[in-house]
C-alpha cells in the first residue's frame, strides 16, 4: 500500500463530505472565474490600447522642390533617431492614389496638377510614444531643408500619456486585489472543509497514523476540489466568452479567443489552490497539541 489506498481515500473524501466539498469546489470555481474574467478584461484593454498606439503616426510633408539630397538628409536623421520604429516615403503619386482610395475621386479629374505633397510616415516604438521624444524629433526634422509641415495627433498622444500608465497600474492593483481575495476565500473555505473533518484527523492520530498518512488524502482531495473547480470555471468562462462574442460582436472589431494556454492556466491555478490550501490547512490541524479526546 498504500499510496493507492491514500489516493482512494482522497476520492472518497469527496463523497463522504458532499456539502463541504461542493462549497469548496464552487468557491474555487467562482474565484477562478473572477480571476479569468479580470485577466480577459485586462488583456482586452491592453490590446485595444496597443492597437491604438500602433495606429499613431507622424506625417512629415515635403516642399515641392525637395531634392533627393534633402530626402537623404531626412532619412539619415530618421535612421539615427532612437525610437523611430519605421518610416515610409509616400510620393506625390502615391498620395494621389491614396486620395482616390479614400475619397473615390481622381484628383487629376478635378485639378490639372497634383497638389498633394510627398511625405514621410513615421511610426514610433511604444516606449518612445511620448511628447518629449516626439517634440525632439519634430524639432530636428523642422530644421532640415525640404521639410514643410509635420502633423501628428497631439491630443491622442496626451491621452495615451495620461491614461496608459494609470490604467496599467489600476489594472495591476485590481488583479492583485482579486487574486488576494480569491486566495483568502479559497484558503478559508478549504480550512472550513478540513475543520469539518477534524474528528477524522483526531481519530487517525489516536490509532497511530503518521502525519504523512493523514495529510495525503486531504491533499488529494484538495487537488480534486481544485480540478473540479477549474473545470466548472472553464465552463463558466467558455459560456461567458461565447455570450460576449455573440452579443458584443457589433461593438468589438474582433472576437475573444478561446486560447488553450488560458484554460491550461485556469486548471493549473485550480490545482495549486487546492494543493496549497489543503496542505496548509491540514498542517495547521496537525500542528495543534497532540491528540486529546473529549
Amino acid at each position: 500500500m498504500s499510496l493507492g489506498f491514500l489516493i482512494k481515500e482522497g476520492f472518497s473524501g469527496l463523497t463522504r463530505s458532499k456539502f463541504p466539498s461542493l462549497v469548496a469546489i464552487l468557491t474555487i470555481a467562482i474565484a477562478l472565474t473572477l480571476l479569468g474574467l479580470s485577466y480577459l478584461a485586462g488583456s482586452e484593454i491592453y490590446s485595444v490600447m496597443k492597437r491604438m498606439r500602433s495606429q499613431f503616426e507622424i506625417e512629415v510633408f515635403l516642399l515641392p522642390n525637395t531634392t533627393e539630397y534633402d530626402q537623404g538628409q531626412i532619412e539619415t536623421v530618421l535612421k539615427q533617431t532612437t525610437g523611430v520604429a519605421q518610416y515610409r516615403y509616400v510620393s506625390k503619386d502615391e498620395a494621389a492614389r491614396r486620395f482616390q482610395e479614400e475619397f473615390g475621386e481622381d484628383i487629376y479629374s478635378v485639378l490639372d496638377a497634383n497638389p498633394l505633397p510627398a511625405s514621410y510616415t513615421i511610426k514610433m516604438d511604444p516606449a518612445h510614444q511620448n511628447s518629449s521624444d516626439i517634440t525632439q524629433l519634430v524639432q530636428r526634422l523642422k530644421k532640415l531643408k525640404g521639410v514643410d509641415e509635420i502633423k501628428y495627433r497631439q491630443n491622442f498622444l496626451r491621452l495615451i500619456e495620461r491614461y496608459y500608465k494609470a490604467i496599467s497600474i489600476a489594472g495591476g492593483i485590481l488583479l492583485l486585489i482579486i487574486l488576494t481575495a480569491s486566495v483568502l476565500l479559497v484558503g478559508n473555505t478549504i480550512k472550513l472543509s478540513i475543520f469539518a473533518k477534524r474528528e477524522v484527523i483526531h481519530i487517525m492520530r489516536l490509532v497511530g497514523a503518521t502525519n504523512r498518512f493523514i495529510k495525503t488524502p486531504f491533499i488529494v482531495e484538495g487537488m480534486l476540489h481544485g480540478l473540479l473547480g477549474a473545470l466548472m470555471a472553464t465552463i463558466f468562462l467558455y459560456g461567458i466568452l461565447l455570450g460576449a462574442n455573440y452579443f458584443l460582436s457589433g461593438f468589438l472589431q474582433h472576437s475573444f479567443a478561446m486560447e488553450p494556454p488560458f484554460f491550461g492556466a485556469i486548471f493549473l491555478a485550480g490545482i495549486l489552490f487546492g494543493l496549497i490550501g489543503s496542505s496548509r490547512s491540514v498542517r495547521m490541524f496537525l500542528n495543534t497539541k497532540p491528540a486529546v479526546h473529549k
Binding site: V200, H202, L206, V207, G208, P290, K294
Partner: peptide, 18 residues
C-alpha cells in the same frame, strides 16, 4: 508517537468512531 500508539490500544467513553 504514532509508532507508540500502534503498540497501545485505546478505548474511550465516547467510543471515538468515525
Amino acid at each position: 508517537i504514532p509508532y507508540l500508539r500502534r503498540r497501545v490500544g485505546m478505548v474511550f467513553q465516547d467510543f471515538q468512531l468515525l
